[in-house]
Design a protein around this nucleic acid. Structure first.
Lengths: 154, 154
DNA sequence: CTCCAGTAGTTGCATGATGAAACCATGTTG
DNA sequence: CAACATGGTTTCATCATGCAACTACTGGAG
């Protein structure tokens, strides 16, 4: 069996995220969902992707608890795809991807939109990593520790 | 011609990021690089991936300006792969992926490591989205605006 | 009720991407 | 130079992706 290697059992949380989100279209589907897209046909026309792939991805995202299907809402007897809290929790990931493009893309003039604070209409600040006490952290200021085992004693 | 659809010309910055980072192994390679991995064989043994795929990904990451090849460093006449500033700029993306796993994974007990502040040994805070003036923003507090055209007048 | 159009998929087939292992080129060691 | 390690490329089988065609169901017009 050759199969694409799965990261499912991997102990690295990044690999585990990619197991659910790392497929070619998944994050773009979630992006559309965050914009309010709910219907199959709407995803399909906005993303311009093949319907079979969309079908497979939607099912995978539902299986991973990122989307859930709801029966209707606009009268028609079809179903729609709604983000779960877990799905909405991907927002920082999308913001990080967006900001990385904005900062490093070779052709930033081709980027059509900017993410702004709705109240002021001003661009949002870059995501910052901070310590518990609020100190700003750079990558070099961080390190990995083994996860403390959850106590099993009484 | 069938070919995987490319997001290269897409105006969405998220799609543009995924064009460079969205391949199945790319972010894990970058994760290792951020940990200090530099050599082909070291990537290969740590990630357990096929050498041909690693070779293709490394080349792609170099082409995208995320990694660069340097001639030596440890005496041997081989080359090594170093992160560029653009590559190091992916750190928030990896942190966002990690935190999403930590927050929403169905089996968080399988996650082996936690990212901590090196100085205090305490977990880093969750990434926060803030307005220019420092107000904390939720997804609903943000919206997209068309990018203001760069003035071409004299 | 019947016909027609639209929505939401599924199925089939062609092709690109991926994975495992073998092969190779170069440098390094004895 | 022979033997070995490093850093790949090539080969081939399988998986994933993409496109088109097809089906099932819904809703509305006549």
């Amino acid at each position: 069996m050759v199969k694409r290697t799965s990261f499912e059992g991997d102990s690295c949380p990044i690999a585990r995220s990619l197991e659910a989100l790392g497929d070619w279209w998944s994050l773009l589907i979630i992006r559309e969902a965050l914009f309010g897209v709910r219907r199959f046909g709407e995803f399909q026309s906005k993303l311009g992707m093949a319907k079979n792939i969309l079908s497979a991805r939607l099912r995978s995202l539902v299986d991973h608890g990122i989307l859930e299907t709801a029966p209707a809402s606009d009268g028609s007897a079809y179903q729609e795809y709604l983000l779960t809290p877990k799905g909405r929790g991907t927002f920082p990931i999308l913001v990080a991807l967006r900001q990385w493009s904005e900062a490093f893309d070779d052709h930033p003039e081709e980027i059509a939109t900017i993410l702004v604070d709705r109240a002021k209409g001003r661009p949002v600040k870059k995501l910052e990593m901070r310590a518990e006490d609020g100190r700003l952290l750079s990558p070099a200021d961080t390190t990995l520790k083994p996860r403390p085992a959850r106590r099993r004693s009484a």
